[in-house]
Amino acid sequence: MLEAILISIATAATPLFLAAIGELVSERAGVLNLGVEGMMAMGAVTGFGIGLATGSPLIGALAAVIVGAVFSLLFAFLTLTLASNQVATGLALTLLGLGVSGQIGEAYVGQPGVRMGPVFLGLDPIFWFSLVLLVVVAWFLFHTKPGLKVRAVGDSHVSAHALGVPVIAIRYAAVAFGGACAGLAGAYLSLVYTPQWVEAMTAGRGWIALALVVFASWRPVRVLVGAWLFGAITIGQLQIQAMSLSTIAGFAAPLDSIVGALKSVPSQFLSSLPYLATVVVLVLISRNRRLALVNTPACLGQPFVPDR
């Protein structure tokens, strides 16, 4: 039973983690992209459609990665080349992504899709890939020279530019990486989690991913921890409900009363915990100046226009 619950949590956590790790790289380079939800929706519809057409979930996932990246370039062009406001542009990207995916997907409603099944320990290839991705991103950002450049661009684009680092080019790459990851996260929903397409099936997960990045104070490993915590809250809420009283009676007395108490907490309160936790973490980070300086990309959200 425990194993099954862990698999459920891992499945719930993976799309959050994928979208968040991409956004983390983008934010480390100083670009705040609020369009995650829209990019995920585009990835979900692409993954489903291409998967169905080719019969291969893997090709579907790859197509979603590409579409996610290309779609994010729209955002990159506006915010990086035209120096438009990142907050508003990100919101526009979400509107556009939800609308376009709904329109493209109208033909797919009511069709079962192809499913990417488990390959190892009951978990699917994308889950295992996401762990590899974590290692690669963590190593890249903190142990390689290009990674250092990404962080430098996010911390002070003026200094980085003065040192000859191509600020705009690096930001383009970071945004595209974020888009690719969000696309994959969307494909995870429509190929692994629930192999089907319905409009707005992302159901707000893109916004949770945004919260996760901050919750993790821009550290890759903490993103994974956070994603698992968020996943555990969702799954735990349902598991506790499903625990029948007779099962609970089998536990020791204190656990019994804990589960009983948890059952009586309104579900809305539990659902709001991740958001409240994110606010608390944000406050803790910003209160501690040293912590803030180490981890927060100082130029987050600021447009950069190089002087000639």
């Binding site: 506006l78 979400t94 509107l95 556009l96």
Partner: peptide, 9 residues
């Protein structure tokens, strides 16, 4: 919705 997104863009 696509329309609104485009206007904003």
């Amino acid at each position: 919705r696509v329309f609104q997104g485009m206007i904003l863009f």
